[in-house]
């Protein structure tokens, strides 16, 4: 768990799946924390050595912020499980027209500890709080 009070994530107990609570001062920090939380849950251990990192840009559109968050996490999850790549998010923008643009720097990983099947829409609701935004995300495993 990241100890920063303004932005962070924590794992909650869920009978069968995995759930995290994520918070951030704005949507960009919320999305960044959600990505960090998911990668931590998947148990990425070591980066592959000797392989230079790759720069990639992604751009996503959705019908609302929740949809945008899911598509963003699914994109990172696909790249993790299929390409064995994790990414540092160098730039991230989220617009009020529900579009997301990100500049990513990727690195190859050796292994990860847990198969996350999917990021679910279950009770997904981005809430505004006194300090910014908050959301609970359930991952199917």
């Amino acid at each position: 768990m990241i100890k920063d009070k303004k932005a962070g994530f924590e794992e909650l107990a869920h009978t069968a799946d995995l759930e995290i609570r994520v918070w951030g001062k704005d949507l960009v920090s919320l999305f960044r924390q959600a990505a960090a939380g998911m990668i931590q849950l998947s148990g990425v251990e070591e980066l592959e050595e000797g392989i230079s990192s790759v720069q990639q840009n992604i751009s996503i559109e959705a019908m609302d912020f929740e949809g945008l968050l899911i598509l963003f996490l699914e994109e990172l999850l696909y790249r993790l499980t299929e390409d064995y790549m994790v990414y540092e998010i160098q730039k991230l923008s989220v617009t009020n027209e529900y579009t997301l643009k990100a500049e990513l720097k990727g690195a190859q990983i050796k292994s990860y500890q847990r198969d996350i099947k999917a990021v679910t829409y279950h009770n997904l609701n981005i809430r505004t709080t006194a300090d910014g935004y908050e959301v609970n995300i359930v991952f199917d495993i």
Binding site: M63, L71, E74, T120, Y121, H122, L124
Partner: peptide
């Protein structure tokens, strides 16, 4: 399909208590 059906739900005017 969970993604593509988000739009279908709007198109067919289906009201749901949970998006999943």
């Amino acid at each position: 399909y969970v993604k593509s059906l988000q739009q279908a739900v709007h198109r067919y005017g289906i009201k749901l208590p949970d998006r999943s």
